[in-house]
Design a protein around this nucleic acid. Structure first.
Length: 112
DNA sequence: ACCGTGACGAGAT
DNA sequence: CATCTCGCCACGG
């Protein structure tokens, strides 16, 4: 055990858990907030490990275009959309509607 | 130890 | 304006 090299994964989960209900954010926004700068990919990779993390609403994390790119990683491909719709987010063909409205920028609205 | 791949993003053509 | 390529870093095979 020991060697928590994936410590930055926890940072990602920390931010994701702070995403308000009915809102979404992007991988790049989280990466930027954590200072990973162009590590948007790393954020996505971290989310892949989120499978073992409770209270990590990965469905609220989409790519910068508001597209549900990671829906295939859920229990079912439609699970992500259903969860978001249950929070009041409208989705059409894996695209978040009113993305600008539901977009939640950690750097602007979050303070942890 | 090397190569390929990946829940992305931005710049260049 | 649409498409392509490269960069980022970590992990699996």
């Amino acid at each position: 055990m020991d060697t928590e090299k994936t410590n930055y994964f926890d940072l990602v989960y920390q931010v994701v858990r702070e995403i308000p209900k009915g809102r979404v954010t992007s991988y790049g926004a989280i990466a930027n907030y954590l200072g990973l700068k162009s590590g948007a990919r790393m954020v996505g990779y971290a989310m892949n490990a989120a499978h073992s993390m409770p209270d990590v609403p990965a469905q609220r994390v989409v790519n910068r275009m508001g597209l549900l790119t990671g829906k295939h990683h859920f229990e079912t491909p439609t699970r992500m959309q259903e969860l978001l719709e249950a929070e009041g987010i409208q989705i059409v063909e894996d695209q978040v509607q009113n993305f600008e409205k539901v977009f939640w920028d950690p750097e602007k609205e979050l303070s942890i």
